[in-house]
Write a protein that binds this DNA or RNA. Structure first.
Length: 421
RNA sequence: GCGACAUUGGUGAAGUGGUUAACACACUGGUUUGUGGCACCAGUAUGCGUGAGUUCGAUUCUCACAUGUCGCCCCA
C-alpha cells in the first residue's frame, strides 16, 4: 500500500515547520482582524464550473469529480474562493452591519495534475476573501498580507507584481481590440492560443509558446484600454502600496488563469534561481462579478491564495527552519516497582505546565540515557526504590549536569527556579 | 496531456548475466546489574519497485505498468 500519487505525509521536522507557519498565519490574521471561515472540501460540481469558469484549465481538466451514492455530481475543491463565496451568499453575510466582511481560510485543495517541484495533487492553501468594498485600499491591504507573512518568516527576495484587468466595460473593449488585432494572425498562433482566441483572449498574453513572437509584442495592452474609473482604481492602489512601503512592479502579462478576476490582479514571486515556473508563491485579485454570478446580490470581492508547499520549499531553499524543541522532563523508573510513582509524577508535572515524557518499556539504565541524548530534555528524573520511599526525587539538570535530590513538595518550585537560571 | 532521468536494507549507497550483494551510518544488547555520549565485541531473519519476456540461469538485458524527481502546459 502506498499513498496516492501526488500526495505526501507530514511528520517529524516538516510537521514542526508547518505548525509554526500555521501559527504565524493565524496570529497575522488576528492582527488584520479577519475572521476564520471553513467550507466543505467537496462542493457541487456546478459551483466550480460557474465560479472558477468553464474556460479555465482548472475546471476543464484538473478536477477530482465523483458521484456520491445518490448520484449527485460532486467535485473536490480545486481552489478556495468559490466555496467561500457560496458560503457568503448562503449565510447571507452580505446583510451584516459591518461591511466589508473580511475572511480567511486554510485547508487542502485538489487538482489532478502531474506532480513536480512545489506542486502536488493534494495541496494546502491559505487565502483571504474580502466582500463588500470596492476601495483600492482593501486591494492594497490584501497584497500586504502575504508580503508581511513572508517578511515575518524571513524570506528574502520577494517580488510583488500587479496589473489591472479593469472593469467589465474596459475589459470588453480590450477583448474586442485584442480580437481585432489577432484576427489576421490566428493561424500563426499555437493550438492553445487558437482556443484562447475564441474563449478567453486575455490568456493569449501570457502564453509561453508564442511569447517571443512579434505579434505578441505589438499587441494592444490592457492598461491603455482602462476607462477612467478603472484607471483611478489602479492608480490609488499603487499610491496605497507606496504608502505601505511595499515595493511592486506593474506587469501587464499577469492575467491569471481563473476567469473571475476584474480590476486588480497580482502575484508574489520568490526570487530564487532554481525555482522554475513554481516561483509564484501567491496570487490573487479582485472579482467584482463573482458573487452575482453565483446567485448573490451584486457585491464586490477581492482575495488571494497562497500555496503552502511552495512556501515550504522557498523556506527550505533559504535554509530557514523553525524547530521548537522543548521537552522539560524525562522520567524513568529503575524497576517495575517504581512505575506507579512515575505515573503519578508525570501527571503532576504536566498539570503544572511542564512537558513530560518517560520510559514506558522498562529499558536498561544505559538505554535510558541514550534516549536522553536523543530527546534532550531539560531535566532527567530518576526514580528508584529510595526515591519512592523518601519522596525525594533525583533530578539531573541535563544541561548543567548538576544532580540533586529534591523533596516532592518542592519539586515544582525547584524546576521553575532552575528554568529561570 | 507531453518529455527526461531514476527506483538496491531502518538510512546513505557500491556492484555483477552465474556460488554468502560490498562498505558506512543508524539501531539493539554486552564488556560496565544507579549515571549516558568514547572504545571494543556481537546481533539486526525472510532486501535489488511490480508484472511479463529473452536466457540453462536476470538484481543486472528488453517491454509494459506503478511510483519518485525534474521540465513543458497550467497553476498556488
Amino acid at each position: 500500500m502506498q499513498k496516492p500519487k501526488g500526495t505526501y505525509d507530514v511528520y517529524g521536522d516538516l510537521g514542526k515547520q508547518i505548525q509554526y507557519i500555521e501559527k504565524v498565519i493565524g496570529a497575522m490574521m488576528e492582527k488584520y482582524h479577519y475572521e476564520y471561515v471553513r467550507t466543505p472540501i467537496f462542493e457541487s460540481k456546478e459551483l466550480f464550473h460557474r465560479g472558477v469558469g468553464d474556460s479555465s484549465d482548472i475546471v476543464t481538466k484538473e478536477t477530482y469529480d465523483f458521484q456520491d451514492r445518490a448520484g449527485r455530481e460532486m467535485t473536490l475543491r480545486p481552489e478556495g474562493t468559490a466555496g467561500v463565496v457560496r458560503s457568503f451568499i448562503e449565510n447571507k453575510l452580505y446583510g451584516r452591519a459591518t461591511l466589508p466582511v473580511k475572511t480567511w481560510y486554510y485547508g487542502p485543495m485538489f487538482r489532478y495534475e502531474r506532480p513536480q517541484a512545489g506542486r502536488y495533487r493534494e495541496f494546502y492553501q491559505f487565502g483571504v476573501e474580502v466582500f463588500g468594498s470596492n476601495d483600492p485600499l482593501i486591494d492594497a491591504e490584501i497584497i500586504s498580507i502575504p508580503v508581511n507573512i513572508y517578511r515575518f518568516l524571513g524570506l528574502k527576495g520577494i517580488k510583488v507584481k500587479i496589473n489591472s484587468l479593469g472593469d467589465e466595460e474596459s475589459r470588453t473593449a480590450y477583448k474586442k481590440a485584442l480580437k481585432e488585432y489577432f484576427k489576421p494572425y490566428v493561424n500563426e498562433l499555437c493550438e492553445d492560443c487558437k482556443v484562447r482566441f475564441e474563449k478567453n483572449p486575455l490568456r493569449m498574453l501570457d502564453c509561453k509558446v508564442d511569447h517571443e513572437k512579434e505579434i505578441m509584442k505589438n499587441a494592444p495592452t490592457i492598461l491603455s484600454y482602462l476607462n477612467k474609473e478603472s484607471e483611478e482604481h489602479f492608480k490609488h492602489l499603487q499610491d496605497y502600496l507606496k504608502a505601505m512601503e511595499i515595493p511592486f512592479e506593474v506587469d501587464e502579462t499577469i492575467v491569471r488563469g481563473l476567469d473571475y478576476y476584474t480590476h486588480t490582479v497580482f502575484e508574489v514571486e520568490a526570487d530564487i534561481k532554481e525555482f522554475g515556473s513554481q516561483k509564484v508563491l501567491c496570487g490573487g485579485g479582485r472579482y467584482n462579478q463573482l458573487v452575482e454570478t453565483l446567485g448573490g446580490p451584486s457585491t464586490c470581492g477581492v482575495g488571494f491564495a497562497m500555496g503552502m508547499e511552495r512556501l515550504l520549499s522557498a523556506l527550505e531553499k533559504e535554509n530557514i527552519t523553525f524547530k521548537e524543541e522543548s521537552l522539560d522532563c524525562y522520567l524513568f523508573a529503575l524497576s517495575e516497582n517504581e512505575k506507579e510513582y512515575v505515573a503519578y509524577l508525570s501527571n503532576l508535572l504536566r498539570m503544572n505546565g511542564f512537558s513530560v515524557t518517560m520510559d514506558y518499556n522498562q529499558k536498561s539504565f544505559k538505554a535510558n540515557f541514550k534516549q536522553v541524548e536523543r530527546l534532550n530534555p531539560k531535566f532527567v528524573l530518576i526514580i528508584g526504590e529510595e526515591e519512592v520511599k523518601d519522596k525525594k526525587i533525583t533530578i539531573k539538570n541535563n544541561h548543567t549536569k548538576k544532580e540533586e535530590k529534591i523533596k516532592e513538595e518542592h519539586l515544582i518550585e525547584y524546576l521553575d527556579e532552575e528554568i529561570e537560571m
